[in-house]
Amino acid sequence: MPNSELMPIGFFAQRTGLTSSALRFYADSGLLPPAEIDPVSGYRYYGADQVARATALRRLREIAMPLADIEAVLGSGADEASRLLDEHVSRVVEDAAAAHRKAAVIKSALGKASGLPITALKGPVLADAVEQVLTATAHEPGMPVLAGLRVEATHDAITLTATDRYRLSTRTLVPAEPPAQTWAGTVNGDELRAAVAEIRRSALVRLEAVPHGIWLRVADREDRHCRLLTEEFPDYRLMLASLGEITTRTTVSKELLLRALEEHPGERLALHIASHGVNVVSEDDEDDKHTHHPLPATTTGHPLRISFELTTLYPAVSTAIGPEVMLDLRGDDQPVTIRSAARGDLTTLAMPIKSARTA
């Protein structure tokens, strides 16, 4: 290759985002040898066809991939390289989680302050409740509290609450032991979600508050620590207290409603609620021309047509407890309350969208 088609190491470094010292290191390790070395001056030159490999090498090092794994990735086809990348990321995540747990233990020891016992809950019950309520969380830039789960302990109950501004889910649990005292905090949702499997396999889980976090204490298993979020949780009690009067109530099979939502082709839909049943129709079908046979339902109050995003309504229905769900409606522009027809300890509010008829 003529020298005119080669790049000196400094120019190649600028093209690829790698430093000259890094290029020398990768050359010595055999990952990226130069295309040519001047036998007199020792200057290293690289070809344009090496830019892609150098760029990929830099990106792999940015995610802390070891050199041996990088060599395997660069020498593999797309499918095998993807598998190796997934394995590496999984190891990084696991190592980070382990480091976080160890750091929590160290901080607790440094503080030399005993935790504050909150309450004890049955592990499987707590795990189910956490999974149900966490469906209403969201990762919003600038609003980390929306990814958290609010835990509130009173003298006779534990309440879990989450909201993404379009849904609000809350579930009340009866503790296995009366709470020692009142307590409230917003727990990191991702860390709590990661602890669910461990919680589910524990007959009893004791909640213990420490500065900046809570401990989930379990017998014969590793205790789990979850951080507390410092941002103020939305005043959901004020929102619940300000809800308008219920004008329509309908009870429908959870299975049938979910099936209708799954089969609906659009991202938006409308519920047409009448005395004869509930129908899932297209949100932009102004005359309900494509109305199917309505789902059997027990309805009281005024007929109503209300529109939703599928991503808002479906999880609110799917997490309801029991074979039937009850929908309490207050108009086509007000939140709908969704809960079990038989049990009220899990309640979800879902926000409708503006109907195409009035848009």
Rank of each mutant, 00 (worst) to 15 (best):
A56Y: 00
A35F: 00
A356I: 10
P8H: 10
I321E: 11
T19K: 11
T161P: 02
T251V: 15
H264S: 09
A270S: 13
E255Q: 11
D328E: 15
H139E: 13
L6C: 02
D235Y: 08
P66A: 03
L243D: 07
A194E: 04
L304P: 06
T251S: 08
D333E: 03
T291R: 15
C226K: 02
A138S: 08
R330P: 03
A297C: 05
P178W: 01
F12Y: 07
P117V: 01
L295P: 02
L204V: 10
A316H: 09
T137I: 09
A180M: 14
Q14P: 05
D288L: 10
S20A: 15
S41D: 05
D49Y: 05
T154S: 15
I63F: 02
E309K: 13
A103L: 13
G30V: 02
I9E: 05
L216F: 02
T311L: 14
G30R: 10
E255P: 00
Q50Y: 00
N279H: 05
S108R: 14
A320E: 03
G277D: 11
R44T: 07
R201D: 12
G266Q: 10
E263S: 12
V73C: 06
D164H: 02
V89K: 08
C226R: 00
G10R: 09
T135C: 03
P2H: 07
F12D: 05
A176W: 06
S20W: 01
T299P: 07
L31F: 11
I338T: 07
C226E: 03
Y236T: 15
A297H: 11
S20F: 05
G185I: 12
V40K: 06
N188R: 05
E245D: 12
E5F: 00
A209Q: 04
A97T: 07
R305Q: 03
A103Y: 10
A209Y: 04
P211A: 01
D49L: 07
A54L: 06
T119G: 06
T337E: 11
G10V: 11
S307C: 14
